[in-house]
C-alpha cells in the first residue's frame, strides 16, 4: 500500500475513533458503567495514534512538517485536543469530561470531511516564505495551546450546565456525577494557565518568522490581529479572575467566549475575512 492511501486511511480511522469516543462518553453521561467508559478512553487513544500516524505520513509524503494548509492545521488541532484531554483524564481520573471535549475534536473532523474540497487536502510543496523552522515551532505550539483552550471550554460548559442544575436543586444522578463546581472552575482555569503562555509563544514565534520572511515582526495582517485579539480576551479573563474575583459562572462564560475567538482565528479569518479581501480585490 502506498503512503498516500495509508494517510487517507489514517484520517478515516481517526475520524471513526474520535466519533466512537465522543459517542461512548456521551452515552456514559446517562449510563454509569466504568468498563463501558473505558472503551471511550481506548477509542481516544486509538484515535490519537492514527492521528499521529496521519501527521507522520503527511510529513513523509510532503517532505515538510504537516503544518501548512488548512487540512493539516485541523488534524494538528485535533491532535492537540486529544493529547490535552487524555492528560486531563489521567490527571483528574474523570472520564465524564470526555463527553464535553472529544466531540469538539470530532466536529472539527466532521467539518473537514463534509466541507473541504478534495484539492484543498493535498500535500503541497512549500512556497518560499513558508520554508522556515520557526513556522514549524509556531504551529506545534499552537496545537497544544488550542487543545488546552478546548479543554477549558469543555470544562466551562460543564460548569455552566452544573450551575443551572444546582440552582434548580437538581437531584438527578447526572448532576451528582458531574464534578463539583470548584473542581470544574479550577480545571478550566488550569487549562488556560497552560494555554495562555503557549499562545504567547505562538504569537512570538510567528513574529520571529515574519521578521525573517518579510522583515516585519508585526504587520497587522488579519490572522495576526485575531491571534492578538484572542490573547487579549484571555488576558482580560485572567485579570478579571485575579483582581475582581470573577470565578465560577462569569469566568466559565469568558472561557467559552475565548474559545469562540480561537475558532474564529483558526477558521473564520480564512473563510470570512480573506474572502472579503478576494472580493474586495475585484
Amino acid at each position: 500500500m502506498d503512503l498516500v492511501t495509508l494517510e487517507q486511511q489514517s484520517f478515516t480511522a481517526t475520524f471513526v475513533a474520535y466519533g466512537a469516543a465522543s459517542l461512548i462518553y456521551v452515552i456514559y453521561l446517562g449510563y454509569k458503567n466504568e468498563s463501558f467508559a473505558r472503551l471511550g478512553t481506548i477509542a481516544t487513544i486509538i484515535g490519537l495514534i492514527t492521528n499521529t500516524a496521519f501527521l507522520v505520513l503527511r510529513w513523509k509524503i510532503s517532505g515538510h512538517a504537516p503544518f501548512v494548509n488548512g487540512y493539516e492545521f485541523l488534524l494538528s488541532f485535533t491532535w492537540g485536543i486529544a493529547v490535552i484531554y487524555l492528560y486531563a483524564e489521567w490527571r483528574y481520573r474523570m472520564r465524564i469530561i470526555g463527553a464535553f471535549v472529544m466531540p469538539i475534536a470530532w466536529f472539527l473532523l466532521a467539518w473537514i470531511a463534509m466541507k473541504m474540497p478534495e484539492q484543498a487536502r493535498y500535500a503541497g510543496n512549500l512556497m518560499p516564505a513558508l520554508q522556515s523552522n520557526w513556522l514549524t515551532i509556531h504551529v506545534a505550539t499552537a496545537m497544544v495551546s488550542y487543545g488546552a483552550f478546548a479543554l477549558s471550554c469543555g470544562t466551562s460548559i460543564m460548569y455552566i450546565v452544573k450551575k443551572v442544575l444546582e440552582d434548580n436543586n437538581s437531584k438527578s444522578s447526572f448532576n451528582k456525577r458531574l464534578p463539583s463546581l470548584d473542581v470544574l472552575d479550577d480545571m478550566s482555569y488550569k487549562a488556560i494557565a497552560i494555554g495562555f503562555p503557549l499562545l504567547s509563544a505562538v504569537i512570538i514565534t510567528g513574529a520571529i518568522w515574519a521578521e525573517f520572511a518579510w522583515g516585519r515582526y508585526w504587520s497587522w495582517d488579519p490572522k495576526e490581529t485575531w491571534s492578538l485579539i484572542t490573547w487579549l480576551v484571555y488576558a482580560a479573563y485572567l485579570h478579571a479572575r485575579f483582581t475582581y474575583g470573577w470565578r465560577g459562572n462569569k469566568a466559565a462564560w469568558m472561557s467559552v467566549l475565548g474559545f469562540a475567538f480561537v475558532l474564529f482565528t483558526f477558521f473564520g479569518v480564512n473563510y470570512f475575512l480573506s474572502g472579503l479581501h478576494a472580493y474586495g480585490g475585484l
Binding site: P222, T225, W226, I229, L232, A236, H239
Partner: peptide, 14 residues
C-alpha cells in the same frame, strides 16, 4: 482598555 483594544482590532480586520 484590553477589551477596547480587542474591539478596535476587530474593527480593523473587518
Amino acid at each position: 482598555l484590553l477589551l477596547v483594544l480587542a474591539a478596535a482590532s476587530i474593527i480593523g480586520t473587518i
